[in-house]
Simulated scan of single mutants.
Amino acid sequence: MTGYRDFAAPEGVRIRGTVLVLPGRGESQAGYGRFGARLAADAYQVRVLPPSTDLSVADAALKEAVSSIDLVRPLVLAGADTGAAVIAALVAQSSPEKAWWPDAVVLAGLPGYDGRQGGGRDEELDLRTHCPVHRGVLTDDPAVVPGSLAEAAPAALLDAAYGSTADVPHLLLTGDADPLADHAELNRLAKSLPQARLAVVRGGHHDVLNDLQHRSVAAEIVTFLEAVRGGVPPVPLVEVVATAW
C-alpha cells in the first residue's frame, strides 16, 4: 500500500513502541505531521495510514502496515473522527489472532450519531480547530475534502464502536467544545469498557489532536503510552498527591 507517512524515533534511541494512526473524514496523512513528529521525538515510531470507513479495507491496511514495519511493541492504534470509530469497531469485532491486534487504542474525536455539521469551508474549519497552524495545514492540503463533516458517520460503524466491550486499554479523547461529539454516549462507552480512560480537553474542538491544546493532548497520549508499556492494566507513572490547582 502506498501513502504511508512515517515518523522515526531519533537515531541511536531505543524505540519504545509503535503507533499506527487512522485519520477521519476529509483528512489526509498530511494533517498529522506535527502529531507524528512529537510522538517520534519521545522514541515512538509512528505510521499514518490513509483514511477509510470500510472495515475490511482498514483491516487489510493495518495488516500490511504492521507487516512492512520493524514492529516494536507495545502496538497502539490511534484514530480520529471516523478513524476512531473504525479502530473501535475493528477491535470490538476482531480477535487477538490478528497480526495488527493492539496492546491499546486511542480514540480521538469519536463522533456521535448526529455528528455532522453543514456550512462553508470557514465554518468547517471552525468546527475542526482554532489552531492557526493546523488551519493553514488543512487549507493548503489538496487532499482535504471540504464538506466532509456535513455527512454523518455510518450508523452501523458507530453501533459497533459504541457497543464495544473489548478488553484492551482505551484512551478516549474529546473536546468539550466539539459539537459533533455525544458526551453522554462517550461517558457510557467509557464505563462499559473494561479498561478505559476518558479525557476531556477544555476548549477543545473536533480535531482534538490538532487543536490549540495539541501539546497537552500529546502529553496525555505519551503518558498513556508509557503506562501501557508498564503492563496491563496500565498504571500512570506519576501520581498527584497534593495540589493547589
Rank of each mutant, 00 (worst) to 15 (best):
D207Y: 12
D42W: 06
A65C: 03
S95V: 06
S68H: 13
H170S: 13
A30P: 07
R121L: 11
G83Y: 04
A152Q: 10
A84W: 02
V200H: 05
V241E: 08
D114A: 12
L22E: 06
S28F: 02
G3Y: 15
H170V: 09
P96K: 11
L186T: 01
E151W: 11
S216P: 00
Q45F: 09
A60H: 08
G230A: 14
H130Q: 14
A156N: 15
M1P: 13
I87L: 10
L172N: 07
S192T: 13
I221E: 05
L180E: 04
R5M: 14
A9S: 10
H130T: 05
S68D: 13
G12K: 02
H214Y: 09
A37T: 09
G24L: 10
D103M: 06
V144T: 12
A92V: 01
D140N: 10
P23N: 13
K191V: 02
P132V: 00
S52D: 10
G3F: 05
A58Q: 09
V240K: 04
G3T: 07
P132C: 01
T18D: 13
A43R: 07
W245L: 13
D81S: 15
D54N: 07
I221R: 01
G230V: 03
L212N: 02
L172G: 11
E97A: 11
G175P: 10
N210K: 00
V232R: 13
P154E: 01
L127P: 07
L107F: 00
A219G: 06
P234N: 10
T53D: 08
R197Y: 08
D159I: 00
D176K: 05
A184D: 15
V238Y: 10
H205N: 09
G203F: 14
A166E: 00
L20Q: 01
G109D: 04
V46A: 03
R215Q: 15
D42Y: 04
D141S: 06
V222R: 11
R34N: 09
P102H: 14
P236C: 02
G203A: 11
G17M: 02
L157Q: 11
S52T: 13
A143H: 02
V232E: 12
V21H: 07
L198M: 03
A190R: 01
D103G: 14
G31Y: 13
V48F: 04
G36P: 04
A61D: 15
A60S: 11
N187P: 00
V217A: 11
C131P: 01
A219P: 01
L90N: 08
G120P: 14
Q45N: 12
E97I: 01
G24N: 11
G26Y: 12
T18Q: 08
L125I: 06
L107K: 03
T243E: 10
L20H: 01
V13S: 15
G33W: 15
